[in-house]
């Protein structure tokens, strides 16, 4: 390192660096400037490698390091076009495919959800004191009042308001169920069992006080989407916990990284399922349609959801 080296290195390049600086500050505009940015980035990379190998003073290296880093980020920070389209494809096609590939986790989470669900329903139906163990008294009264109304919708303040609340509450629960899978899967297990037991007990309790029909009418439309959404989020959480605990010889970070694409698709699927559930719940379930039509609609929904999960994303289908 001597003064001549330093000057000989900087002088012929400084104008190009200054130009790159200006491009980065103003933001490249138009194809020509983008091309120029790419070229300038490559040459700065070369300068950096050269500066390092010829051991130029650290300030020159730090300057180039930073300039190249910023150019790199600018150059690659272009958002990929068609994010919306790929989102749609990922959630409609890739998600069911992924769920089938992860069927073990889906099976486990389904069992973890429906088993307590069945216990709650049967328990509350057969023994009136069972519900008291699970549900606080105030909630029992509230539920009774809510479902006792002949015309459900009038008790609620409005369709749009309820849809917003369902999104806020239910999708939130599903996201929590997924994300707490990071606690070695235990959080997901808790949310699955807890929600299964709660929902089952509510159903059983309302059935035992003679309001089962009202409940079934209200929930038939969206239950396919909502219950499946919870199970899928649980499957994603269990997958996450599994990747964290059983690393297969990789580092924990590497194991998580490997699971990430799968988790992403499952989360997209959960989101889609629950958004549909919220829309149906808000705009249809409490609506004025007759009970028979609602039941039929519910059966169709279950058919749609199950065939989507079973067939979606297969070559030649959908």
């Amino acid at each position: 390192m001597n003064v001549a080296d330093r000057d000989a290195f900087i002088a012929p390049r400084s104008e190009r660096w200054a130009r790159l600086e200006r491009l980065l500050v103003s933001g490249p505009d138009g194809a020509a400037e983008w091309a120029e940015l790419a070229a300038a980035y490559r040459s700065v990379c070369a300068d950096l490698a050269r500066a390092r190998s010829s051991r130029l003073p650290s300030d020159v290296i730090a300057f180039l390091d930073e300039l190249a880093g910023r150019a790199h980020n600018r150059l690659y920070s272009v958002r990929p076009a068609g994010l919306g389209l790929s989102l749609l494809r990922d959630s409609i096609e890739a998600f069911p495919r992924e769920l089938r590939a992860q069927w073990r986790f889906f099976l486990l989470s389904t069992v973890l959800f429906y088993l307590p669900f069945a216990v709650g329903t049967l328990g509350a139906l057969s023994d009136p004191s069972f519900a008291a163990l699970v549900l606080p008294e105030a909630q029992q009264a509230m539920l009774e009042e809510m479902y006792a109304q002949e015309d459900l919708v009038r008790g609620l303040s409005g369709d749009a308001s309820m849809a917003g609340f369902y999104v806020f509450n239910n999708v939130g629960i599903a996201f929590r169920c997924f994300t707490t899978g990071a606690l070695a899967g235990l959080g997901s297990v808790f949310f699955l069992v807890y929600n299964g037991l709660m929902i089952g007990t509510i159903g059983g309790y309302l059935g035992s006080v003679g309001l089962g029909g009202n409940l079934l009418e209200f929930t038939s439309g969206h239950s396919a989407w909502e219950l499946t959404g919870i199970c899928v989020s649980g499957a994603a959480g269990l997958r996450l916990g599994w990747a964290l605990v059983v690393t297969g010889g990789r580092t924990r970070a590497g194991s998580l990284r490997l699971a990430a694409p799968s988790l992403y698709r499952l989360v997209l699927g959960t989101t889609l399922l629950l958004l549909v559930a919220a829309a149906v719940e808000g705009f249809w379930s409490a609506g004025p349609a007759p009970r028979g039509l609602k039941y039929a609609f519910g059966v169709v929904q279950w058919g749609i959801v199950l065939s989507w999960l079973a067939l979606g994303g297969r070559r030649g289908s959908l």
């Binding site: 409005g158 369709d159 309820m162 917003g164």
Partner: peptide
Amino acid sequence: EGVGAGLQYL
């Protein structure tokens, strides 16, 4: 008022 509350939740 329902729309406003719904949008708030959203």
